[in-house]
Write a protein that binds this DNA or RNA. Structure first.
Lengths: 142, 142
DNA sequence: ATAGCTGCAAACTATTTGCAATCCC
DNA sequence: GGGATTGCAAATAGTTTGCAGCTAT
C-alpha cells in the first residue's frame, strides 16, 4: 500500500472519529510512513520540527497516542530506553539492532501458528524479535 | 537447574570477579530465582524490603546491573513502562500479558533457525514474543 | 585495613498533564 | 462560534549518580 493511499485513510479515519486534520497530525503520520527504522517520539519530533519549527514535543506524544488509538500505528515492544512506533500495522516481524536500537520490519513468513492457549494465557498473536547488528553499526566497528 | 545450585554459581561468580557477597545482592538474586513473572526493579525492591526494610531502590538498580554484567540475569525486551529482568539465561521464548505486563517463559521449542544475514544485519539470535491475556487478568474480566 | 557497597538525596531522561491561547469545521 | 488541539511549563515516573559512611574480605 502506498503512502498517498495511507494518508487518505488517515484523513478518512480522522473525519470518521471527529478528529481535526491539523498540520501537526499529518506531519507526524507522514514521518512514520516515510521512516523505516521505527523512530522514537524524539526522532519524530526532530523530523517534524524541520517543517514546523514551533511544534511541541508534547504534541508529538499526544499525536502518536491518538494515532495508536485509531489503529494507524503501533507501539513496538522496545529495546533501549524509549518507545518506538511503527506505521506498518500488518502482521510482521522485527529485526532489532542491539547496538543502536534501530528496528526494521522483516517480511519473510514463518509458517507457524501458536496454540490458542499456553499456560492458561489466551493467546492473541505473536511476533518474532530477531537480534543482530545493523549495517551502520557494523561499519562503525573498525 | 535448581535454586541451590544457581545460588552457588552466583556466589562463585562473585568471588571470581572480586565482588563481595552482600545480603542485598543475595536477596535480589534470590527474588529473581523465585519469581516466574520477570519482575520489574520496583517489584524486586518490594520483595527484598520484606526481608531488609532498609534496602534502597538505588541498590536494587545497581545490583541488577551487576548481575546482568555477570551474565546471571537478562534484561527482557519489555512491554509497558519498566524494564523487567529474567534469571533464566538459557534460550527461551516469552509469553506476555498485554493487560498487566507479566512475562512468563515458554519452554516449547520452535524448530527454526534464522538466516545469519537478514537485510545486512549480522544476526545473533531471536526470540518469540507471544501476546495474550494471563489467567489473572482473564479472571478480572467479568 | 581497605576497596567495594550501601543508603540517601539530588540529578536526569522519558513521558504526561493543566491551562490559556489558537485553530479547524 | 465553539469544541478540539496546541504550546508552554510544570508535574510524574523510572532510572542513574555523587558522596559520606559502612561492611565483607
Amino acid at each position: 500500500m502506498d503512502r498517498k493511499k495511507k494518508l487518505g485513510q488517515f484523513i478518512e479515519a480522522c473525519r470518521h472519529s471527529g478528529l481535526k486534520i491539523t498540520p501537526q497530525r499529518v506531519a507526524v503520520y507522514e514521518v512514520l510512513l516515510t521512516r523505516e527504522d521505527h523512530p522514537t517520539v524524539e526522532d519524530i519530533y526532530n523530523e517534524v520540527k524541520k517543517k514546523y519549527p514551533f511544534v511541541s514535543l508534547a504534541t508529538v506524544y499526544r499525536t502518536v497516542e491518538t494515532l495508536e488509538e485509531l489503529g494507524l500505528i503501533r507501539k513496538v515492544a522496545y529495546w533501549g530506553s524509549s518507545v518506538r512506533y511503527d506505521a506498518n500495522t500488518s502482521d510482521h516481524h522485527h529485526l532489532i539492532c542491539v547496538q543502536c536500537g534501530a528496528i526494521r520490519d522483516v517480511e519473510f513468513c514463518l509458517d507457524w501458528t501458536p496454540p490458542t492457549n499456553i499456560q492458561g494465557y489466551r493467546v492473541h498473536k505473536y511476533s518474532l524479535h530477531i537480534y543482530g547488528v545493523c549495517p551502520v553499526c557494523q561499519a562503525k566497528e573498525n
